[in-house]
């Protein structure tokens, strides 16, 4: 599986990371090196093997339905780059 410049651009877009056009070829090459390394996995016979789902199988713990959190808008907003009137503010989203 070889990645070209267009695919690299697509991945960057999916990951929401801006990559300059002239940096794409180098990025694609790095991907290909890494993917080339990963290709080894194809050598393994995985017939009938279940994918690992949990590292240490145990029963998923449940919480009681009690309100134990929240009521701290100041703390929630304290690190925001742009908080206004109790909201997080971001550049306008176009639907």
């Amino acid at each position: 599986m070889s990645i070209d410049k267009a695919q690299a651009a697509h991945v960057a877009k999916l990951a929401r990371i801006k990559v300059e056009d002239d940096a794409l070829p180098a990025l694609a090459e790095e991907f290909n090196t890494i993917l080339g390394f990963i290709e080894q996995l194809n050598e393994v016979d995985i017939e009938g093997v279940e994918p690992m789902v949990s590292v240490t199988p145990m029963r998923l713990k449940r919480r009681e339905d009690v309100v134990t959190d929240g009521q701290m808008p100041d703390k929630v907003l304290s690190n925001a780059p742009d908080a206004r009137e109790g909201f997080f503010a971001v550049p306008k989203v176009v639907e």
């Binding site: 393994v44 690992m52 789902v53």
Partner: peptide, 15 residues
Amino acid sequence: FYDAYYNRARKVRTL
């Protein structure tokens, strides 16, 4: 690519 990579890697992890 999910099956080819991620799923496969998790199976190898089981092994």
